[in-house]
């Protein structure tokens, strides 16, 4: 099997994997970074969202061979101590119910706010539309993204 050098959360890793193995499973099963979640495997739910060079991306559809030199950030690498504004807002609003989709929600929100620091409410709703929350904590997700934008 081929070997790949990955930069995940500012650390270099060497992994041996099938070239088609999605980054999601490389992170979860080979690198023990289980914060990134498996939801649907077809890019529909957003639970597996990570940042690839700062861009929110669905890791379940991304073969490891396509990652190249791109810098990967997962929920574990968003901050050292939950100090990222989106994490702080998530805690202040007490967003999660079951919590399973929240890593993906937070990664989508943090990449979005990086590009659009002062979004309108409609822009927030549109940006978060791709992430499913089966518990339907949507109103708090929306509130937390708006709060994070003000931090």
């Amino acid at each position: 099997m081929p070997t790949y050098n990955l930069n995940v959360n500012k650390k270099n890793h060497t992994v041996e994997a099938d070239e088609n193995m999605p980054l999601l499973w490389v992170l979860r099963d080979l690198l023990d970074l289980v914060g990134t979640k498996f939801g649907c495997g077809i890019g529909q739910c957003g639970a597996c969202t990570i940042h690839l060079d700062g861009v929110a991306s669905r890791s379940c559809l991304m073969p490891i061979s396509s990652v190249g030199d791109a810098k990967i950030t997962t929920i574990e690498g968003l901050s050292e101590d939950n100090s990222h504004p989106v994490q702080k807002a998530w805690k202040e609003v007490d967003v999660p119910q079951c919590g399973y989709c929240q890593a993906g929600q937070i990664m989508t929100a943090s990449a979005f706010l990086e590009n659009n620091p002062s979004p309108s409410k409609e822009e927030v709703r549109s940006a978060m539309h791709g992430n499913i929350c089966r518990c339907s904590a949507y109103n708090r997700i929306e509130e937390a993204v708006n709060l994070a934008a003000k931090m």
């Binding site: 970074l33 289980v34 914060g35 990134t36 574990e76 007490d94 919590g99 929240q102």
Partner: peptide, 23 residues
Amino acid sequence: KDIVNVDIDKIISGKPLFGLDYK
């Protein structure tokens, strides 16, 4: 009183919590 979810810090930092995370 309003008490925040006791697992909040682990959820927002992606710590292993769920069945799928157990190994």
